[in-house]
Design a protein around this nucleic acid. Structure first.
Lengths: 198, 198
DNA sequence: GCCTTATATGGAACGCGTACCAATTAAATA
DNA sequence: TATTTAATTGGTACGCGTTCCATATAAGGC
């Protein structure tokens, strides 16, 4: 029985290579020119294909942006780890990490916008933030730091989740609500960490 | 000396009435059809003017959306106060309010998107969230609740700011990061409030 | 090479927010 | 009524994300 003739479907390899190529160009555009430069038409020009071709490989723009998150999150994690480096005491480590987290996003509003504000709240099927193992790994850092200051595992997940969402909320507030005199980052993260360790 | 002839500029009253008219229509559109329905062209059609006329009275779309915030925030505050009503004990009141705050935004993702995700992080001149006295009043609710549980005023502002930004962060996380198994709202707000009162 | 089937593409389109501009309209004075 | 000045408007345009579609191209079997 002969196989049907005709053009074969794209191979997994073709698909993977093309997607990587698109993501690579998106990342370069983002790094060199910022969030606003990453348009589908611009991206297609850089890749050397028609915009519609990109839509054949990705569900939409958010699907591409999501791939940039891991680059930003890796950068953030490096920043946090660099600041953690000289610190040994667990509570001080947690405080340093929390402060570095919030400071990072304040210093990089474009990154914050990319990671936390380009996710469409109307489409509940696009919540794939944590499905990426590398993303999970970066937030695992806080799981470990919280575990390092707790004497028991009671409520460890609640404390970690509270810490992480609170830090994200702080970054959001500092970044978007400019006309309110928020207390300093160190004061706010200090208060948060106090509440976690007690 | 005769006054120069010609059409006089719009009066303050004309300006105010037109703006109110636009905002009223925007609010109606938002309430009846949601965030996506509030486009400038649609809004102009409802108002009965050209889209460009709206730009003569508002700086842009965000400038209009900002006026919808107070309606949503009033709704949110009503919801919180309604849940507070039967509660007397200060810590339970704070916990109820925190939980109601987060629950409200989870139950109304469109509202969350409107208030917290339509503010453009690239334009630092648009952070006028708290300049509205009514908005400040709604958040003053938390200032008062926190004051009600503290035995001293030390760090009161840091605790209030931490609480508010953390709650916003929680709402953001529940609304946008769907693939992570966050602990329940009551667990997370409970942890947060514990950290505030101790 | 021909046929077949999948993919990519050019083009058009839609509504979006926003900018620009000449013409029209409105509202005042002389 | 004519003139003046401000406001509004219709129209065009831009790039945006995305959809649609007929056509061109690509890649395989025979």
């Amino acid at each position: 029985m002969t196989k049907a003739s005709g053009r074969p479907p794209r191979s997994e390899r073709d698909i993977s290579e093309f997607r990587s190529k698109v993501v690579k160009h998106a990342l370069t555009l983002y790094r060199e020119e910022g969030f606003g430069a990453v348009s589908m038409r611009r991206l297609a020009r850089e890749v050397g294909c028609a915009p519609m071709t990109i839509y054949a490989h990705f569900d939409g723009k958010t699907d591409i942006l999501r791939h940039l998150w891991s680059d930003v999150l890796a950068d953030m994690a490096d920043y946090i780890r660099k600041n953690l480096n000289p610190i040994v005491e667990p509570v001080d480590r947690l405080q340093s990490a929390a402060q570095s987290f919030v400071t990072y996003w304040i210093d990089h509003p474009d990154h914050f916008r990319l990671v936390f504000m380009s996710n469409d709240v109307e489409r509940s099927d696009v919540g794939t933030f944590m499905r990426d193992p590398k993303t999970l790994e970066h937030f695992q850092l806080f799981t470990d730091l919280v575990a390092g200051v707790l004497s028991s595992e009671d409520h460890a997940k609640a404390k970690t989740d509270t810490l992480v969402s609170a830090m994200i909320g702080m970054a959001l507030c500092y970044n978007t609500i400019h006309d309110y005199p928020w207390v300093s980052v160190s004061a706010m993260t200090g208060q948060l960490v106090d509440g976690i360790i007690n």
